[in-house]
Simulated assay, not measured.
Amino acid sequence: MPDSARTTTSFPLDAYFERIGWEGGRRPDAATLRGVQLAHMRAIPFENLDALGGRAPSLDLSDLTAKLVHGRRRGGYCYEHNTLFAAVLEALGVRVTRLTARVVVGADRFADRPRTHMALLADLPGDPRPHLADVGFGAVGSLLEPVPLVADTEFEDAGRRHRLVHAPHRGPLEMWVLQAYVAGGWQAQYAFTVEPFEPSDYEMINWHIATNPRSPFSRRPYVQRLTPDAHLLLDGDRVTVTRTDDGTVTERKVADEAEARRVLDEEFGIDVPEGLTLLR
């Protein structure tokens, strides 16, 4: 299995674990990987406020640590979350391959979607199966815990249901598709191969997604927060709450800029950058 493992011995694990509220083990095993991913997703929100302000967020690890770990009331989107999480896993002794994926929710043809999502493949010592790990997919169908890279097997991750399947693909590598069981059926979330990508690749993709005027992340707020009870989403001027227990979905409209700021403060735990206009 190709990998882009790195050594991150100076990563501030103590501060990170305090940020996500993790008091469990620190061994490079499946139990730690599952627990830390879930804790991360419940502690650090997904948000695109830097891109909404016209700026590509820094992917430098020290900047990410300042924003997501020490910042407390900010989050980030996939490149930020998974760049940080890769450093965490490597500091724990896990070998990490950085991947890119095509977000295919609602797509008729996978090839019509570019590779704009970052995900991770984690190789655990003594475990022959790599695990798909991902703390940065901003959707209700996101993985809550890593799953083994095994085809046609259903996994339950903290109450959600996922499986990986293969899809037809013209390239030399197998195309994997992450599916989530949503609204009574299996829905494709993203498609990927296990080709490793490097930080320079994400720098380019990150700049494009953050600054392209056609990108949804540069045009409207897209923020999500995960709690044990619900998945919260602010998409433009709409707040959607999906209950964990029964999947009940409620939606409401945000009236104006002041209410949008209040919602982010009180419900998402996010401080809006000074000077940023949320609703346009």
Rank of each mutant, 00 (worst) to 15 (best):
M1Y: 11
L13M: 11
D14A: 13
A15E: 14
Y16L: 05
F17E: 04
R19M: 06
R19G: 09
R19V: 07
E23T: 15
G24F: 08
R26E: 14
R27H: 13
T32D: 08
G35C: 02
G35M: 03
Q37I: 01
H40C: 05
A43V: 12
F46R: 02
D50M: 04
D50S: 13
A56K: 07
P57G: 00
S58G: 08
S58T: 08
D63F: 01
D63H: 11
D63W: 02
K67T: 03
L68I: 09
G71Y: 01
R73C: 06
R74P: 01
Y79N: 09
H81N: 09
H81P: 07
L84Q: 06
V88L: 05
L89I: 01
E90R: 08
A91C: 15
L92D: 07
R102D: 10
G106T: 11
D108E: 15
R109T: 14
R109N: 15
P114V: 12
T116F: 07
H117Q: 11
M118P: 06
M118E: 09
M118A: 06
L120E: 06
L120R: 00
A122N: 05
A122D: 05
L124W: 07
G126A: 07
D127I: 03
D127N: 11
P130L: 00
P130R: 03
P130K: 01
A133S: 12
D134R: 01
V135K: 02
A151H: 10
D152A: 10
F155M: 11
E156R: 14
R161H: 14
R161M: 12
A167M: 10
H169W: 15
P172W: 04
V177Y: 02
L178R: 00
A183H: 10
A183Y: 11
G185A: 09
G185L: 05
Q187S: 13
Q187F: 07
Q187I: 13
Q187E: 14
A188V: 07
Y190K: 07
Y190D: 01
A191Q: 03
F192H: 11
S200T: 13
S200V: 13
M204E: 14
I205W: 00
H208Q: 13
A210W: 02
A210G: 11
T211M: 06
N212S: 15
N212P: 12
R214G: 15
P216D: 06
F217M: 12
V223Q: 01
V223D: 00
Q224L: 12
L226Y: 03
L226E: 08
T227S: 09
L232D: 00
L234H: 01
R238W: 10
V239C: 01
V239K: 00
T240A: 10
V241P: 00
R243Q: 14
D245W: 11
G247W: 08
V249A: 07
T250W: 08
R252S: 14
V254F: 07
V254E: 02
A255N: 10
A258D: 14
R262Q: 12
I270W: 01
I270M: 03
D271Y: 04
V272A: 04
P273Q: 03
E274H: 12
G275Q: 11
T277K: 13
